[in-house]
């Protein structure tokens, strides 16, 4: 079981949290201008790196607030925890070919 440190409540078991998938996926600035391909990217396509991944979690069984985690999807090691107000940590993809997910349609 993962242990995640909620920025507000501290270290808790994974069972208190729910997963929110990739972080930093912004809603399109001008939705009406998007092509079908761009909508498909926004709705259905997410990064799926083997290595460090910036993702969202919500502390459902506690303060019910969302926050971000950078976690290595190979080892499940938590590399960073940060709130939406904090800057995104720069994590170098050590011995892996995959950079931290860039987020958003590209």
């Amino acid at each position: 079981m993962l242990h995640l440190k909620c920025p507000w409540c501290g270290l808790r078991d994974e069972t208190e949290y729910c997963y929110g998938g990739q972080a930093h996926v912004a809603y399109p600035e001008d939705p009406a201008a998007l092509t079908d391909e761009e909508w498909a990217e926004y709705l259905f396509f997410r990064d799926n790196p083997k290595g460090p991944f910036a993702e969202r979690w919500v502390h459902s069984g506690g303060c019910r607030r969302w926050f971000n985690v950078v976690r290595d999807t190979r080892t499940y090691e938590v590399l960073a925890v940060y709130t939406s107000k904090q800057p995104r940590p720069s994590i170098s993809p050590e011995n892996g070919s995959t950079a931290v997910a860039t987020g958003g349609p590209r």
């Binding site: 079981m1 998938g21 799926n48 993702e55 190979r74 499940y76």
Partner: peptide
């Protein structure tokens, strides 16, 4: 398991 993972293992709960 709810999270993305390539580890061929998951959480015991």
């Amino acid at each position: 398991d709810s999270y993305n993972g390539y580890g061929q293992r998951g959480s015991f709960h």
